[in-house]
């Protein structure tokens, strides 16, 4: 039987899959948006995307 309650709690089994998705998502977004490499390869490749997404670029 499923009990419906208006709670904000998350069942234990759901914590890990959701957390993995959040960590992967933040890693991808922040890595591409913010990393500056010494050769500027990543910066130059991501340049137009960063400007268009309003990430600080230069």
């Amino acid at each position: 039987m499923k009990i419906l309650t208006a709670s904000t709690s998350i069942s234990y089994a759901k914590i890990l899959p959701g957390l993995c998705a959040i960590v992967l998502g933040l890693t991808v977004v922040l890595g591409l948006g913010f990393l500056q490499d010494s050769n500027n390869y990543l910066h130059n490749a991501a340049h137009d995307g960063r400007h268009s997404a309003a990430f600080p670029c230069h």
Binding site: T8, I10, K14, P17, G18, L19, A21, I22, L24, G25, L26, T27, V28, V29, L32, G33, A45, A46, D48, G49, R50, S52, A53
Partner: peptide, 28 residues
């Protein structure tokens, strides 16, 4: 080449942002 990298950047960051949204909906 330049547009290709922008497309790649867009695709990957879109994937990242979508993970945040789908995980939030999953939790709730």
């Amino acid at each position: 080449q330049r547009n290709g990298f922008t497309l790649l950047f867009n695709g990957l960051t879109g994937f990242g942002f979508a993970l945040l949204i789908s995980a939030s909906m999953y939790w709730r």
